[in-house]
Design a binder for these strands. Structure first.
Lengths: 226, 226
DNA sequence: AGTAAATATTAAGAATTCGTGATAATCTTC
DNA sequence: GAAGATTATCACGAATTCTTAATATTTACT
């Protein structure tokens, strides 16, 4: 498995045992870890420590996880994974989770948490991975730039997000529904046609006239071949 | 002027005013700063945060500065500067200070503290010194001046702070929300438009007619390219 | 080949975001 | 307290981006 270097993780939970358990485990994996036991502390620490990712328990005395998530998402570029007990998950909670990037139900295995963290990092900070270069593509997320054959592509935000998603999942077939979910968000009401429109725009900018780079798999979706 | 980058400082004092004053000043100088208001917290934070240097007030309720110093010096590789009120300094205190690397008597000027910190760092972490020239920009934080191509820019305070923030984070995309947070403060109530207005003013003074120096990334923010 | 479904292409208008100049409010300085 | 600089607000036009919808083309299947 790939090792991530210099990734900062902030753990927030009111149970010291869990906190310590996770802290030791993550440090062992090479993460830089800090911990907070309540919401206020979490917000303060997040501003100071500037973590890449926050593992955030929903149920806490005082300011709860939702509140913390809302406050930080506004201004900080950080991935948030929410933790919740299994029996707390109803629709209301699910709704509130939406600000987060991912969520997990307790109890979970440490391996699972690790996998989720890696997935988040890959998604949100692909430049921190040792592998930033996907064939002729180079994704620089901090600059919000994608290079194709050493040339900067002039992309709108949506085009950028879409191409990034496609390239990162290079080799996989991605259905339009899935693309819509990931790039436009689960609550996008419009037609799937918009994906086609954007794919076309990307192909044009990539001079992919023959559709060899971004392949159409009729009935299944699209796939980037490198 | 030489600048220190990535130096972590932990401030420990029970007076929030002093704490805040020093924190802002040091952050302004480019240090990574965290704060603690009592001895217990200081020890906990020191273990997690692994600061290069600790500024430690002697007189605190609960665990006092000596105690904290003793505990940390045993196991952590950290420089400690102790702070004490002038009238507390007798021979007994001097004796106890010996564990520390340096000490200062209150009141002291910020400049003095800076000098001491720099001296300590030079001594204990000589490999961390760095020059602060960002391409054609030279930021002189003591004079609150920014030079662009050897010319002094005539900037208002806000313009100065904004340009400094942009230049220091050169190459990164900074959202307007984030800029507001960092330059105007988290509690600024107004509209994000003010960022646009100031960006415009900076572009004018930088003669950046083509927006090549300060680029707009529509929907994402701004980015300085050097 | 004929047909239906899926995808591609295009263009137009809706919506959003940004830039700009004017102006009001606030703070400084003499 | 007048003059000047600075900061903040506002409104509107310009520019870009997003979305939709209508039409064309391709593909799969009978």
């Amino acid at each position: 498995m790939q090792k991530l270097k210099g990734i900062k993780v902030l753990l927030v939970d009111d149970e010291p045992n869990i906190l310590e358990f996770l802290e030791m485990g993550l440090q062992d994996e090479g993460f830089e870890v800090m911990t907070a036991q309540d919401g206020m502390m979490a917000v303060t620490l997040a501003k100071q420590f500037q973590p890449h990712i926050i593992i955030l328990d929903v149920m806490m005395p005082g300011m709860d996880g939702f509140e913390v998530c809302r406050m930080l998402k506004k201004s900080e570029n950080v991935a948030i994974i929410m933790l919740t007990a299994k029996d707390e998950v109803d629709d209301r909670v699910k709704g509130l989770m939406l600000g987060a990037d991912d969520y997990m139900m307790k109890p979970f295995s440490f391996e699972e948490l690790l996998a989720r963290i890696q997935a988040r990092i890959r998604n949100q900070f692909p430049n921190l991975m040792e592998e930033v270069v996907h064939g002729p593509f180079r994704i620089d997320d901090r600059r919000k730039e994608i290079l194709y054959n050493q040339r900067v592509l002039e992309l709108s935000t949506t085009e950028y997000e879409l191409l990034k998603y496609l390239v990162i999942n290079q080799g996989l077939v991605l259905s339009k529904a899935k693309i819509l979910d990931k790039v436009w968000g689960y609550d996008f009401g419009g037609d799937e046609n918009i994906v086609e429109v954007y794919i076309r725009s990307l192909r044009e900018k990539l001079k992919d006239k023959e559709h060899r780079l971004i392949r159409t798999l009729r009935g299944s979706g699209y796939r980037v071949d490198l």
